[in-house]
Amino acid sequence: MKTKEKPEKLSDLTKTPSGKAGSFKLTDVSGWKTFKPVLDEDKCINCLQCWVYCPHGVIERTSDDQAISIDLQECKGCGICADVCPTDAIEMNKIRGVDDE
């Protein structure tokens, strides 16, 4: 669990081992990725498969006729979105600087 501000004295800590909900959030996992999803908006039919299957909740649905959007800061690059996309609108591209094995 994380704290926003560094506690300086005992009374800065909660009375009990507890904290605000959501404090396991990692604000930037962009460094976890080897591949990143790249969306071809023209191919996206907004079927929401990628949205419903994204385990990490980084895909946002937009209004009916528009394509989805992906938060790359929180994306771990698992590639599920590309795998489930029925129109191949998402491609997993290797991030520059990641060495080929």
Binding site: F24, K25, L26, W32, L48, P55, G57, E74, K76, C78
Partner: peptide, 28 residues
């Protein structure tokens, strides 16, 4: 149907492995 699944998400991205279906289960 998929478009009837609630939009609000009560979870953020935590430290689960990429592709973790356990996290997906709780999220849903």
């Amino acid at each position: 149907k998929i478009d009837e699944v609630t939009e609000t998400d009560y979870m953020d991205s935590g430290a689960a492995c990429p592709g973790c279906a356990g996290e997906l289960a709780l999220r849903l």
